[in-house]
Design a protein around this nucleic acid. Sequence first.
DNA 1: TACATACAC
DNA 2: GATGGTGTATGTA
Length: 526
Amino acid sequence: MFKPPPAVKVSPSRPMEPPGSSLFNDHAADKRERLKSNVGYVKSMISRATPAQQAKNEKEFNDVVADYKTLRNLKDYCVHVDLDAFYAQVECLREPKYTRLPMAVGGDSMLSTANYPARKFGVKSGMPGFQAKKLCPQLVILPCDFKLYHKASWSFHQVLSKFDPDVRMAGLDEAYLNLSNFVADAPDGYSMNTVAYDGECQCNRPRKDDITEDDEVISSGDITCTICGMAQLYFNCTMNFSPGIDGMIRMLRMEVAMRTNLSCSAGIASSYYLAKVCSDINKPNGQFILPGDNDALDTFILSSPLKLFPGIGPTSSNSLAEFGIKTVADLLNHKKNLRFMVSNSQYYLLTRIVAGVDCPPDETEESTNETDNGIDSGKTVGTESTFTPTSNQAELVSLIRSFAKSAIESAKGDGVTSVGILFVKVKLGSYDVHTCSQKFNEQVPLTNVELLQNVSETLLTKFIAKQGKKDIRLLGVRYGELGMAPLSKVQTGLKSFLNKPTVGGRCVKRRKLEENTDPVTVIDLE
DNA sequence: TACATACAC
DNA sequence: GATGGTGTATGTA
């Protein structure tokens, strides 16, 4: 294992960025070493590749990309909508003072999200809270309140489903819509009566800055906000939206703003995949349209860094960077060696990125892996938890038994009645992760708590016996090959949320004022 | 089948 | 001083 040489004290003041020797950093360093060594190995392979091989690779790449490009549907309007700094924004509705102060949601060990004032300090989601506090000592960290976020998400979904009844939520704060059929039917555009806000008070949306030259302010005034007690200016106005997709999406975002008091960003493109990339570009409170035009697509894609594309995470991104590949354009310069550098599935992901198309639709549309006997082999459900590292076996056994139990409870909540396989996950103090599993000869009913606990314990003790006495910092239990209760019992009617396909209820073809409709938030803050 | 790695949110 | 939890997909042997 790589160990840095002992630090030498040269100056009385600490250097700004101590590399910090810790098990976590050691683990990260190990990982970097492994990555580099693998890259070195691949480079040596490439140096021995024959020109014929490389020519073949290049042809394959071109053919696959050309093939994928035939799947471009340039006329489609795929839309990705994403609430900005979602948890933080919702917390600001409850406690408006945080709109201007650096604040994050999460815990000391991990932040789920940070508001924009905090981001100015370099605070980011995924960062441990204690590190964020070093960057920004005045940072306020609030605990997650998922009940509240679910309420906000529900309101968000309600607005979106008026624009596309088949809207697909991807988590609480983002959604995909298809507006391909919508845009043409309003030659004069749309208009909407609303109230925009300004002033000290930050409780309400849309904001005055959201008003454009196309809009008309009917009247205005100032009051004291009943929520935060600060000065609030209001502008009764008619917002007018241009007839194309741009206006439609601005209208959608304004409707989200008035119904939830939350800002969101949107990306519009000819594929969902690209729409998702686009929604980040003008975040927060903005939108970006990638025109449905082959040249525009190619230009956009080629200039984009690979790490912006979903599926290219830190590992792939760093690995490719070692080969000198940072953007899609770089990728094209390495066509002939790509096959050596990435796995088969990554290869096809990369070719799809170049082509700018979505995954081909799933053959088994809308279906689970559920078989006739009600076993869903694909899904898993489990519980895991991190604690102060310990090697005390009695403690560990007690923990794994309690996790086995809570995983049962969580499975029950998902309508599971029996399990066919059990996984135990162990993370050592060194951050190395291991899993052990036990497949059962027949389905074990969730009522058999003792058995599932015993098996979990056995897997753990066997693992410890094999590894020797080491500190453990995380344990988890997960069940697979789930036997499901009959669907009618479980289905809580998510599908029934989808409303009628009316285009934005109150959003009508361009015509003048009705009366002022209430801009009241639909999020009930208690 | 059993385990490890990568990724999204 | 200290770096998350849940679930899916995929690679390898």
